[in-house]
Design a protein around this nucleic acid. Sequence first.
RNA 1: GCCCCCGUAGCUCAGUGGAUAGAGCACCUGGUUGCGGACCAGGAGGUCAGAGGUUCAAAUCCUCUCGGGGGUGCCA
Length: 555
Amino acid sequence: MTVRQDLAALIEKALGKAQDIGALPQFPPPPVEVTPTKPQFGDYSSNVALTLARVARMSPLQIAEIIRQHMPVNEMLSEVSVAPPGFLNMRLDPIWLARRVEDIEAKGRTWSHSSVGRGKKVQVEFVSANPTGPLHFGGARNAVLGDTLARVLAAVGYEVQREYYVNDAGTQMRKFGETLYARYAQALGEDIPVPEDGYMGQYMVEYGRHIAAQHGRRFLDMDREKAIEALTDLGLEIVLEGLKKDLADLRVEFDNWFSERSLYRDGTFEKVLALLRERGYMYEKDGAVWFAATKLGGDKDEVIIRSTGEPGYFASDIAYHYNKFVLRGFDWVIDVWAVDHQGHVPRMKIMMQALGLDPDRLTIVLYNLVTLKRHGQEVKLSKRSGDIITLREVLDEVGPDPIRFMLLTRSNESKIDFDLGLAVEETQENPVYYVQYAHTRIAGILRKARSDGWEDWSDGDVTLLTHPSEQALLKKIIDLPDLLITVADRLEPHHLTYYAQELATQFHAFYRDCRVVDPANPEMTKARLRLVAAVKTIFAHLLEDLLGMSAPEVM
RNA sequence: GCCCCCGUAGCUCAGUGGAUAGAGCACCUGGUUGCGGACCAGGAGGUCAGAGGUUCAAAUCCUCUCGGGGGUGCCA
């Protein structure tokens, strides 16, 4: 149970008790929310009394007062008070708060975890960029967003699978194969032009050369179609290897790389088509096969199989999601998409209905685009030449930490300007180092303590930790489990970076006010070393486990 | 045309029904005979784009207007 959950439970008990003895009229138990509040009011606050005024037909102030009188005796709170127009304010007991250090010591990095996910199977599908070349820097936002969500969902008790959908079928792959064939042939001195709408990037030339060097002329000697097929597979291998490497360096790993082709090969596609036909959602018109989205409230029907006989992307999306929900049994699926795909969200929901699935089991997280800047000047992510700014280039220039942190400092729907100059600047405009410095500073304190001869401080008395700055720091810490629940609930990981900055601020303020290693006061030193070590655990957890960054011992 | 997102301090942005709207940067004042100053404290800075509405309570929900972005293919 988190602090907010515990306090809400106390209020619920008080409400029940007041109703039992007739101090409050009967009404169904309301949802009780407890939120942190400003110091002048207390530590936490609840507005239940305000929401109950109508149903209880009493003034909010009266209701709050009755709740206050019936609050169960407990060790968490030192004071419960009522404030107009009807707030219930609670102050934590300083000793109880100080003892949270023992909790953190006992549980370590899993201290922030909760079980609101109740082991539900959730899949986060993200990145899923066409495997036709290296990852565009814009894709980094998708990667960081999906990865961080997966980390947080796991922390709050979901069983999470991370998946990359490999679009290895369809027209883009065909174009890729044809382009690669041309580049391969050119590498061997043949004058074969790249198709009009092919992939013009320099990387395709390199792939061609690479394959030419490894395999010689053998693909030129075979049937062109066969050669393209073989080259497509070889190219795909090279691309996937690169994607895995780049993503791994961004500290993003996937549990599964799901092949679109497999849907056609194992019969899933045909099966789903038959299912939809059986349910009356399919018809033919103008030589194409259509999905009757309008039957389920959609704006217009959608082409499933083009008149050329090729299935469109929507067709494989249907089969793919059938596979996720029906064949693999995910309770919940989260797809992470850039906003320019927003138009597909409604039809995905309709598809769920057509498959007889609850649309709420599919959540599409949309995020806005990233523009790359250097000293305030925009750098185009893709050029007419087909060359792009790759994730690899930015990784090599600034490293994974600033990329991850910066891409999480904005809400999903907000655009991001990523400034390459700023990302590595060690100034106050760059919050990345500010947060990491807090961790480093603690490491420095612990080093200092050991070099001064402190070896074992496990018997320190944590109840001495009642200085306002110690208490403020602890209050910030104990909000983390609730924060993770909020992030998981709203699928908004940017709250993590704000929290990290606030926690760092509280730590730096503590550092200013409270000397840790103090030979004149060994008892306080041991207590504070316990505190500081616990805070270090929290920072390490936040940075490494949740944000996927490094938590440096020295900077 | 229709649909979606955004508009909050000079700048970049948090804040999705509660109390006096916050942070960082920039600007102005200060702070170390200290465990790492990559730090800290204080000040100044607001018609929450505008207008109506719902509510005990609105930056937040609803309607309209203005401004910016995106979407609206037998592309993905």
